[in-house]
Nucleic acid binder design. Structure first.
Lengths: 244, 244
DNA sequence: GCGCGGTTTTGACCGTGGTCAAACCCCGGC
DNA sequence: GCCGGGGTTTGACCACGGTCAAAACCGCGC
């Protein structure tokens, strides 16, 4: 919680944050940022494998990734899991909790991470006086929805290798927006997580990585994935059904 | 657009509307409703198969189903389609358009339907002065997100017949909330639509309907689906991974 | 009534990707 | 260094559900 706000520092630290979103024309003014920041709470970093919030806990806040990576997933009564998304710096989590006051999914770190906590009560106050912030929040939520939708399309009826191709391309694009090298990915999640996210078996994912390596598209080594032929990757993705 | 508002009539006509949501503790006051209603525009009924808004059109409004049923879907460049959802009276559509000013999907009627149009510019004005409405809108959007998520879970790794069982049960529950008979469904969508929604082949859906009929769970006749053994249906769904 | 077209059902066959199992590899701990 | 274990890769086999095709059914218009 910053009391005396250094706007430049904020701009540096929070440039990628979904809420601030300096890139957008609809961004917030300096005054808005002061108000908003009052509802932001820094948290202690979380170690790998720790739970930020568990499915079912009473909703209290939204969270934005500051550093690291997390996954969100729902867990059925039989222990079956479905991963909903992977969250990189700037991504927001916890929106689903608004509807019935409880988080509908668990958020867990994939590596040591730190997040900002936006307590909802305070955020609500802030938005009440700041139409721009309110609109911005709406947009962010809408973005999350569209995100889910493209995930859905992937799961719908796509070939296994197209799913993986889409996944890699999406990760590459996200890395680019974070100013990371979009052709040398270090994936924070396991093969099992990728497989689950894509609705495949982990063996299938492993095989496909192999296949794409033989095809000269990728160079894969555990968590490290180099994209050698972006053009061929795009080709695998085929006629886009993409958005967002 | 009602100029002199009859609250009782509103309550009667709009009782199921996601936005009004009289059932909820967080519902809106009479005054709020007046303000809100200023942004509501009735529209001419749409015939079966008509498009409410096409994918890619500039975003201008949210829509709430008043009567009938619609589907929303995304269309890839190769003509491949993925249905995102079926929308019954009270359901909201078009939220995805907020993020980048264009609707990310098409909304099309499954039967003759009528909808309310909530022009976003006016809605924004209304929410600026009504924190309760604003919160309500957030909740509705959050609900849409959670909805997508459970769709995602279905597509993830579930057996074909479990998918269909979930689908039928969900429809039954939605019908119940609309005071329709939850055991005698008249499905407004085709087998093809159901199959696409569930990520299956339409033949598979047809076969599964047959199978569940032989098992004495359902009685199926084209669009009419009777649920004979709700207990067995629930059993098929198995350990719930459900929410919303 | 009849015949047409679209939807649904049923059947036979086949392929993608899942399952089971073993080998492998890399990293961390002792 | 050596060993141990989780994550990953590879292989062999198989089943679920997809595909192709034809028949049946139903509603609708003439």
């Amino acid at each position: 919680m910053t009391s005396d706000l250094d706007l430049d520092e904020l701009r540096r630290n929070c440039g990628y944050c979904a809420i601030h979103d300096f890139q957008l024309p609809v961004g917030l003014s300096a005054g808005d940022l002061h108000t908003l920041n009052a509802s932001v709470h820094d948290m202690l970093p979380l170690d790998r494998g720790q739970t930020l919030f568990p499915q079912g806990r009473k909703f209290s806040a939204l969270y934005v990734v500051r550093a690291g990576a997390l996954k969100t997933f729902v867990e059925g009564s039989e222990g079956d899991v479905q991963i909903l998304g992977f969250h990189l710096p700037g991504d927001i989590m916890g929106i689903g909790g608004l509807i019935n006051e409880h988080y509908p999914c668990t958020a867990q770190t994939l590596e040591r991470s730190s997040v900002c906590e936006l307590r909802y009560a305070q955020l609500q106050e802030a938005t009440a006086n700041l139409p721009a912030l309110n609109h911005q929040l709406m947009r962010v939520i809408s973005g999350a929805l569209v995100n889910e939708q493209s995930h859905l399309v992937l799961m719908g009826k796509q070939q296994a290798q197209r799913r993986l191709a889409f996944f890699i391309r999406r990760m590459s694009d996200r890395y680019a927006r974070l100013s990371r090298d979009p052709l040398a990915l270090i994936l924070p999640m396991s093969r099992e997580d990728i497989a689950n996210y894509l609705g495949l078996a982990l063996e299938t994912v492993s095989r496909l990585f192999g296949k794409m390596e033989s095809a000269g598209i990728l160079s894969v080594n555990r968590k490290s994935v180099q994209i050698l032929r972006r053009d061929l990757l795009d080709e695998l993705c085929g006629g886009d059904i993409d958005m967002a």
